[in-house]
């Protein structure tokens, strides 16, 4: 007891509760979200329409789901830039074997298995050979998309009618992909916030060496995360295939920027150890609100590129500042 009080005296005085609650990156995301909704309604009279916004979110729901898992990967101190290419390759493989006569359920398994295998390759190179994940996944990003291009050329492969239309399935007036995204957020939020596994992810990201000394099996945890990444990318790829009714090698092209952006905007700390699923959840909505608002107002897509780039930079600066001021 005496020891504890001694440390407490040395440390800075505890911050008032309102600061703990309010000065955090998720709050920034929430404020930006409200600003975005307001700005969208000012830009175009056609913007404020729940059905339309839900429909627009469906178009990004696949990326958003991947971004949720990516958040865990970044918290654990790694990064994965290959998921968009993974989506394309698993979807192309699925459509290709399916078109070659493999029964649909089996073809789905092939797609998911391919996604897992790609995650495993990333994990093996990063953890087994200890090559930084940044550069490994730039390499696999090019490789996976290139393989998809070899398989599908540049023609689009149709998927069977029975598989098409996930975005038309409505549950209580909400498109199924949006529901899936919310469910995944809930599950991952609980996993990260309430389980030992979640606690270990933070530990690995904060100080990998210390975590290992404390008995955390860092390699195993990071491998599991890369496998989860592969699997969710494949699911996202198949969802996209179902939404579009056809698959081409350029599916999800450039999606890695949006995924990283969602995680960053949600206040995930790029150097690992900090971040929440709630933040990424809010950020996904923010991103959809911003892009949809600009598209419906017929703003040049060039401005979207600028705004997305600026948002990414501003959000990491803000996140870094908030963390450095509040949690030393």
């Amino acid at each position: 007891m005496t020891e504890t009080s001694a440390t407490a005296r040395d440390a800075a005085p505890p911050r008032p509760l309102w600061q703990v609650l309010l000065i955090r990156p998720e709050m920034m995301t929430l404020i930006l979200l409200l600003v975005g909704i307001f700005a969208g309604s000012q830009l175009s009279e056609f913007f404020l329409d729940t059905d339309y916004i839900l429909k627009s979110f469906t178009l990004s729901a696949e990326f958003a789901m991947v971004a949720l898992v990516l958040t865990l990967v970044i918290i654990a101190g790694e990064i994965d830039l290959s998921p968009a290419a993974n989506m394309a390759l698993s979807a192309c493989l699925f459509a290709w074997v399916q078109a070659a006569g493999v029964p649909l359920p089996l073809a789905v398994l092939v797609g998911l298995g391919a996604g897992l295998a790609m995650g495993a390759l990333n994990g093996a190179l990063v953890i087994g050979l200890q090559i930084p994940s940044i550069i490994v996944t730039i390499g696999t990003l090019i490789l996976y998309r290139g393989l998809a291009q070899i398989i599908a050329g540049d023609k689009s492969i149709r998927v069977p009618e029975s598989f098409v239309g996930i975005n038309d399935v409505m549950v209580a007036g909400i498109p199924l992909p949006v529901i899936l995204f919310c469910l995944l957020a809930l599950v991952l939020g609980l996993l990260l916030g309430t389980t030992i596994f979640g606690r270990q992810i933070y530990l690995v990201g904060t100080n990998e060496v210390a975590a290992r000394h404390a008995g955390v099996r860092s390699a195993r945890i990071r491998m599991i995360l890369f496998l989860m990444m592969g699997l969710v990318s494949a699911v996202a790829g198949l969802m996209t295939a179902s939404r579009l009714g056809s698959v081409r090698y350029d599916l999800g092209l450039g999606g890695e920027l949006q995924m990283v952006l969602m995680a960053m905007l949600g206040g995930t700390y790029i150097f690992g150890g900090r971040g929440t699923i709630l933040g990424t959840f809010l950020a996904a909505w923010l991103l959809v609100i911003v892009t949809t608002g600009m598209i419906v107002a017929n703003v040049l897509p060039a401005w979207q590129l600028c705004v997305l780039g600026l948002l990414l930079i501003v959000s990491i600066i803000a996140t870094n500042l908030i963390y450095s001021r509040t949690q030393r």
């Binding site: 689009s156 996209t240 579009l244 350029d250």
Partner: peptide
């Protein structure tokens, strides 16, 4: 890329245009 036109078509529907002319990026997506 094949899907990049989709949000633009959705937005034009929302804007209530009468005619959409399009140079399609995909024959079926």
């Amino acid at each position: 890329e094949a899907t990049s036109q989709i949000p633009f078509i959705e937005a034009q529907i929302q804007r209530g245009v009468n005619v959409i002319g399009i140079a399609p990026n995909s024959p079926d997506a």
